[in-house]
Design a protein around this nucleic acid. Structure first.
Lengths: 347, 347
DNA sequence: CTGAAAGCGCTTACAG
DNA sequence: CTGAAAGCGCTTACAG
């Protein structure tokens, strides 16, 4: 069961060099895929590596390189599914390699945020930092990474940086599409639950809502737009306010699924039948979207793919993983049609 | 903004030694908190450390120690909230220290599972591996860790190992409590949706269900026990089978929240009113439990606390984080009473 | 195109 | 109780 013969410890670069009859510098060149080696040399070394079952010691490389072969995920995102799906994307992409993924949740309201991240990065010295929203929106953080010579890839609902440093969805377009779908069912009075002020995703989704309404010649009534926090409870509160209007909406778009579920609660506690008396759409395609009744029409956010693309950008030029074309930045979202949106009640 | 004067790079152990007028070995002793140092020495070194803003280089320590100061989380758990809450617990516990958390999802059905983990652990050399269920149930994996001299802490629904290597909930008792609550409402015909065969959590929860029924003198009818996969869809299927019985249950306990949500769907698609016509209880207290209507009565699984306790055990004797008494193994669950369980319909 | 030397910043093993 | 030497397994910087 144990491949490693007791007493004979793991082979080092010296063992490979000796066996191949070359210097360890040459072995190092092969390991790091450097150019300008005679093919015969390379082959000899590779044979020795295989025969010995050699694998370079990451700790030694890290010390000599002054850099760990790790990616660190910095996040302050309350949505577990989002964070985990992103991790999955990253790990799928780096799977075969010897990279490791380090996770580092932070508190964006902490006064020490920058200095904490500074010291963590300075000590740990990863290849790159991956920033999830809303952290990804902070330019000071991206600048900090650069000043520490740590690559930085920012994930967001819109273009946050140059193509090498950014992975994006197009939330504006995605919301435009789902709201267009609602409108196509015949709705005119559509309520909107906005995300928290200051978040880029909230702004993009609002732009999408406003565009969709404008494109179809519908007015955005201020009384039918309320702000939430992206949390479930705020969705309940928003739903109540919307339904308390003298002319309540016949449909509501909430800027994420949690708040959409909250709007459902507000409707159900008033005894409304769903979706007949109120259509509701959300954003994220979280597990909750399938679990609620009626199942929620929503937008699938390509977070797994964004994780894979972020990993690819993080190691570009060092490791080659290329599921995506090099210039890819924006990944497509898709409307997921389920049961929570139907025609408005006859008036 | 940059504390590090350009040109003067980070202080090393040599700088500290020089400034304190001691050998670097002495500095090393202070860093590692070794005993048997004159207090005056220690104080001198500590002053120099503070004055210089010195922090040991983790890469160098890793090489010299033959060990990284990291914890690796090995998991094959489909529940994002569970995994993320566990990560949160671990990170809360190790927060201040210079430990890093590395995540490594694996595929427990892969033929290379053991060899993949073997090579990852052998190369990465973490302080410890943290195993989440269902991976934690595999004795061969725990043995592999030990053979590689990597500590291993197993998380489970029951005692899986010695107290130093195990963190547990008591799912049997927790289910007993929630089912007792259902019975206390007056239900006699209670359906049961089991978890997948082979999983310890499924077996423990079943034991709890059976005990609760027995304690209250109720029969467990085979026709009212169906097996699910812990996934939502399997809950729908289970719910349909239960409701198709000639004498359908008046209440259902599903072994997790996802399946409970599925049972709700099965009931709603038949036009049942919830909870008046069917009471439903779940397990996990996932976000979904709050989002469904009626909100789900369930069991809160102390996964955040288990993460913190697992971290504490992983570094015991190396680092001291002690929110928990040393001998703590089992952490308490709690019944969360919401709206999905009420009295049975009058007959 | 390949290699011998020095070094990365720590710790272990041994003295005294 | 403290230290000088050697070493962990790689890479950088320089030769040739």
């Amino acid at each position: 069961m144990e491949p490693q013969t007791p007493g004979r410890s793991k082979p080092t670069i010296n063992d490979v060099a000796a066996r191949a009859g070359v210097s360890k510098k040459t072995v190092s060149r092969v390991i790091n895929g450097e150019a300008g080696l005679r093919e015969a040399m390379r082959a000899r070394v590779e044979t020795a590596i295989v025969e010995l079952g050699y694998a370079p010691n990451p700790q030694a490389r890290a010390l000599a390189f002054g850099r760990n072969f790790t990616l660190v995920l910095l996040h302050d995102n309350p949505n577990a599914q989002t964070v985990l799906n992103f991790q999955k994307g990253v790990l799928d992409a780096i799977g075969g390699s010897d990279l490791a993924l380090v996770v580092r949740p932070v508190d964006r309201n902490s006064a020490d945020l920058m200095s904490d991240i500074n010291s963590f990065l300075a000590r740990h010295r990863p290849l790159a930092a991956l920033l999830l929203p809303p952290l990804s929106e902070r330019d000071d953080l991206a600048a900090l990474c650069r000043s520490l010579d740590v690559r930085c890839v920012r994930v967001g609902s819109a273009l946050l940086d140059d193509p090498e440093h950014c992975v994006a969805s197009n939330d504006c377009d995605a919301v435009r599409a789902v709201v267009a779908h609602v409108i196509a069912q015949g709705h005119r009075r559509i309520g909107f639950v906005r995300g928290p002020a200051g978040l880029r995703s909230a702004a993009e989704r609002e732009r999408g809502f406003v565009s969709a309404m404008a494109e179809h010649g519908l007015a955005v009534r201020a009384s039918l737009c309320v702000e939430g926090t992206y949390r479930f409870e705020s969705g309940i509160a928003a739903g109540r306010r919307l339904l308390d209007q003298p002319e309540p909406p016949t449909a509501v778009f909430a800027s994420n699924d949690e708040m959409a579920a909250g709007v459902m609660h507000a409707a159900l506690e008033r005894g409304l039948r769903l979706p007949e008396q109120l259509s509701i759409a959300g954003f994220d395609d979280s597990p909750t979207a399938r679990h609620v009744w009626p199942a929620l029409t929503t937008v699938r956010w390509p977070i797994v793919e964004m994780g894979a693309l972020a990993a690819q950008k993080a190691v570009a030029g060092i490791l080659d993983i290329h599921p995506f074309a090099e210039e890819t930045v924006t990944l497509p979202s898709a409307v997921v049609t389920r049961d929570s949106v139907t025609r408005p009640p006859a008036t």
